[in-house]
Write a protein that binds this DNA or RNA. Structure first.
Lengths: 172, 172
DNA sequence: CGGATTGAGTTCAATGACGCAACTGAGTAG
DNA sequence: CTACTCAGTTGCGTCATTGAACTCAATCCG
């Protein structure tokens, strides 16, 4: 059986996972962000099998997350780089990395630290509210139905619940 | 061959993906966050096959991300809920959802909107710097080697590069 | 009292995805 | 002329995922 497609789900998380939700894609994107760019570099760094890397890169390129450009002819050599959509994904990957660092850190300590070049400090990625800039947590977020909601596989029950939410105080 | 394990990689992203990086886990966690809790609710909402959901829930429970508690005896009925680690993952999943909303939104519009209950506003999840609270982007983040770094599969080349970084101005 | 329904899974066959290793093919270095 | 690098492709075996059917205990319905 083919793996269930998330592409037609009316859910932005599922549709995002359809593009980058397999095992290796986040690591490939992280490596491209960290400066790797060539096929064999990725193979060596990650230990991914070559045929699988070929498939992943093709799919990421088809979905507009990486682009493949020849950086020399004769012999043809290619560099993979993040597109705008791929770079826009980096903060979300950093947030996931920070979670892994809190809950699955190697005994030896954090493998990678991040520096915010605009302020010059080491930092932890933090997910915050675009309205008040305070951190958001599971306890302080409520979901409500959006215009694209639909009760279909992926959000069959959830969509119904959001349309009859628990009493929500006036939303600004 | 078994899928390559990320568990021994010296990389917090890979180790996090080892716990929740499969196709369905993020959607399961999102559903639990949105208030679903029973086995059949998840099956109906997501359209996941029942045997696979069994495996996923067992693995998420074994990794401390969800917990399974009987909410009644005779007949035994179980509720799945997020643990602290699971709830801590929600902001990262929101960040990923926001990315999906920007780059893979259904034509009909956003399926789900989020409200920050502490400030009362609708908002977009934003990944920010814990030091200066400004948003972080791929362009304004530099990675440096942490104490747990190691040149092994997963970070074989990357770890070496981080130890000889491009000129980094004084880090505070 | 008997049949249908609910909740929570388990079992099964088929098929696709993944992992490894070996191979190709163009060009370059020694 | 041989070895090496880069960027894949090919082949083969094993594992994971899917959908559908099945189990089992208990309760609801008439």
């Amino acid at each position: 059986m083919e793996r269930t497609s998330f592409a037609h789900m009316r859910c932005s998380l599922a549709r995002g996972l359809e593009l980058i939700g397999d095992w290796w894609s986040p690591l490939i994107i992280r490596d491209l962000f960290l400066g790797l760019s060539r096929f064999d570099e990725l193979v060596e760094d990650l230990g991914i099998s070559r045929n699988l890397l070929t498939r992943r890169l093709k799919s990421l390129a088809a979905n507009g997350i990486v682009e493949r450009t020849a950086y020399q002819q004769k012999p043809a050599r290619y560099a993979y780089r993040l597109t705008e959509a791929g770079r826009d994904l980096v903060p979300a990957i950093l947030a996931l990395t920070a979670w892994g660092d809190r809950w699955a850190r190697p005994r030896e300590g954090s493998p990678i630290l991040f520096v915010h070049t605009t302020c010059g400090h080491r930092f932890e990625p933090r997910v915050t509210c675009s309205a008040c800039t305070e951190p958001v947590t599971a306890e302080t977020v409520t979901a409500i139905a959006g215009p694209g909601g639909a009760a279909r596989p992926g959000t069959k029950l959830v969509a119904r619940r959001l349309h009859s939410p628990a009493p929500v105080a006036a939303i600004k």
